[in-house]
Amino acid sequence: MAAYRYCEAVTALQARNFSYGIRLLPEPKRLAMSALYALARRVDDIGDGELAADRKKEQLLATRALLDEIRAGSVTEEDTDPIKVALADAARRFPIPLDAFDELIDGVEMDLRGEEYQTFEDLKVYCRCVAGSIGRLSLGVYGCEDPKRGAEYADTLGLALQLTNILRDLREDAGNGRTYLPAEDLARFGCEQGFAQSTPPAGADFTGLIAFEAARAQGYFEEGLRLLPMLDRRSRACTAAMAGIYHRLLGRIAAEPESVLRGRVSLPGWEKAYVALSGLAGGRS
């Protein structure tokens, strides 16, 4: 189906980390995951784009309407939106919890409102919207021997990944006027000044802050990865690959905290491929 080919192209071009895991899935699941990613990418691009806030809200509302069409079963292959067509087909083949996309949109709307997070409990709500939702959507494609507990682990793993993202993008987000780390943590470590410079805030315990947040993320990785034995081999490999790449990023950040102030920390392509192959072989990197 041409719609799936479009979604696969979007995934190959833009999913810097997730594409390594998606490639390990058998074709039906790989195509469905590409459709999920393509719509998630669209939602993210709306939030991160250059449109005025009112136009962004309109496009997010249109995306909710798209989801309603899929839920109503009214999408046909003649529709001109390939992402809608592919996702509608995937939703017919797999028990995908489409309501999780509404949560993703909720998270992007939180960004549009410029919400700040005073406590970690506040931040968890955002993380579960923008990342835990993706874990639960993915589980609908993978299948799981214990769907209820599996969804909880998938949500927790998404939280670990999003915390890693927040640490990785600390300087970039600060340049856009955003700080996602909880205000209570910034105050605890003397980092209320923010992260607009390539050096830590004067007098702050920046290393302590990163160590604290990295340890928190590590705990969520350990809990969330309990999902792996509940999945079939290929789905387990996909999840292990995607989580493994972010886990390695977290380790790199923890080892050199100030690196996040100099630019986006990333892994080279060969290392991502190694992690993916390790996941296929049953390892956890």
Rank of each mutant, 00 (worst) to 15 (best):
T63N: 10
D102S: 12
K84C: 01
E78F: 13
L66F: 09
R92T: 01
L61R: 15
D68E: 15
R113C: 11
E109Y: 04
D122Y: 02
A72E: 10
P95C: 09
P97A: 09
A88H: 06
T76W: 05
V108K: 05
E115H: 10
G114H: 14
F120K: 08
A86E: 10
G73W: 09
F120Y: 14
I83P: 08
E115S: 10
E50I: 11
K57V: 14
D54H: 11
D54S: 12
A52L: 11
T119Y: 06
E50H: 13
D99C: 12
A72K: 11
L87Y: 06
L123H: 06
T63P: 07
R71K: 15
P97N: 10
E115A: 12
I83W: 03
G73S: 06
A53S: 15
K56I: 04
E116H: 09
P95G: 05
R92D: 01
A53R: 14
G73E: 08
Q118R: 15
D81I: 00
L61V: 14
D68I: 08
E109G: 02
D54C: 08
F120D: 13
K56Y: 03
L61Q: 15
T63E: 12
K57Q: 15
A52H: 07
D102K: 02
E115K: 12
E103L: 15
F101H: 01
L66C: 08
P95W: 08
F101T: 00
L66R: 02
E58N: 10
D122K: 04
F120E: 13
P82N: 08
V75G: 03
L112I: 06
D99Q: 14
G107N: 08
E103Q: 14
E115Y: 04
E109A: 04
A100E: 15
A52I: 05
L87F: 07
A86W: 10
L98F: 00
L66N: 00
L98Y: 01
T63Y: 11
V85A: 11
Y117S: 09
E121F: 13
L67I: 04
I70T: 02
V85S: 05
E121G: 04
I96V: 04
K84S: 00
R113L: 14
E78W: 12
D54L: 07
F101Y: 09
E77S: 11
L51N: 07
F120P: 07
L104A: 00
E69C: 03
Y117M: 13
D106A: 07
R92I: 01
E103H: 13
A91G: 02
V75I: 04
M110I: 13
G73A: 10
D68M: 12
L112N: 08
E58I: 11
L67F: 04
K84D: 00
K57L: 15
E69Y: 01
E50L: 12
E103T: 15
